[in-house]
Amino acid sequence: MAKPLSANTFLSVLRAEGVRVVEVGNWRTHNRNHKGAWGPVHGVMIHHTVTRGTAATVRICRDGYAGLPGPLCHGVIAKNGTVHLVGYGRANHAGLGDDDVLRAVIAERTLPADNEANTDGNARFYGFECENLGDGSDPWPAAQVNAIVRASAALVRAHGWGKDGNTSVIGHSEWQPGKVDPRGPGIGMADVRRRVAERLRHPANWSTGGADTYRVRPGDTLSEIAAAHGTTVAKLARLNGIENPDHIRVGQTIKLR
């Protein structure tokens, strides 16, 4: 349980964790606080947007649509790993979810299966919407997943929530029955939690996942892999004998150092 960070502190901890941030309009005061509580907060929730294109995705998440006014999250995580801040305070992202899941998040223990929708999640979770079609085949680039991990770790670190197993970071699918997000090749909440826990064993400015290699996922580019691991395209190309940086294949193992 924790009081939400101030907007300025929220921005500061994201940047300290190495997150690339774009501030969208009056995001600090754009919220749904007049509709209900904002806080205490207990964790971070990850979603996919079912949209294509960063500009359109950011606009929808900021403004909402008929029947669901914005903001629809606090930050939009684009395919290139940039986080666009669109609101701060109560946001229409989590909806009603399972009180047993909330208790597990608070206790930082293994999540039960979600089978009820009886608890307001908009008051209790930070929310990040991730640009993805959600069709199960739209890929999640390395830079985007890295941004999810960094943004989640920033908030967990700031609040002093648990580090091992870290159920302070959950997917929408783990909160509300019938939801499937985040979904697709290259994303999994168990892996996200593992990587968050690893980041929290290091200072906020830690720039690599500590691995010596990376296996290419659908949608990855060499430039995104380099950015996600604090290195350069030229170095990766040299280490791996890659003549054309635009030609890497899914499943290829990339040496990082």
Results as ranks from 00 to 15, higher is better:
2 A>S: 14
10 F>A: 01
10 F>H: 08
16 A>P: 02
26 N>S: 09
31 N>Q: 04
33 N>P: 08
36 G>W: 12
39 G>S: 06
40 P>F: 11
42 H>F: 15
48 H>A: 05
51 T>Q: 09
55 A>D: 14
57 T>F: 14
62 R>E: 03
70 G>D: 04
74 H>I: 08
75 G>T: 07
76 V>L: 05
79 K>I: 05
80 N>D: 15
83 V>F: 01
84 H>K: 04
90 R>I: 01
97 G>N: 01
97 G>R: 00
99 D>K: 14
100 D>I: 13
104 A>E: 14
105 V>G: 03
109 R>Y: 14
110 T>A: 13
113 A>G: 02
113 A>W: 15
116 E>L: 03
118 N>P: 03
120 D>E: 15
120 D>L: 09
121 G>F: 08
126 Y>I: 09
130 C>S: 07
133 L>K: 06
135 D>S: 07
137 S>W: 01
137 S>N: 15
140 W>G: 11
141 P>E: 15
146 N>K: 11
148 I>N: 02
149 V>M: 04
153 A>T: 15
153 A>E: 02
161 W>K: 03
162 G>I: 03
164 D>N: 13
165 G>D: 15
173 S>G: 14
176 Q>I: 07
177 P>T: 10
177 P>K: 10
184 G>P: 02
185 P>S: 12
187 I>R: 03
189 M>S: 05
198 E>D: 12
198 E>I: 06
199 R>K: 14
204 A>C: 07
206 W>S: 13
211 A>F: 03
213 T>K: 04
221 T>H: 12
227 A>D: 05
232 T>K: 03
233 V>K: 08
235 K>D: 15
237 A>Q: 10
240 N>V: 12
246 D>K: 05
250 V>I: 09
250 V>A: 05
251 G>H: 14
252 Q>G: 12
252 Q>I: 08
253 T>N: 07
256 L>A: 00
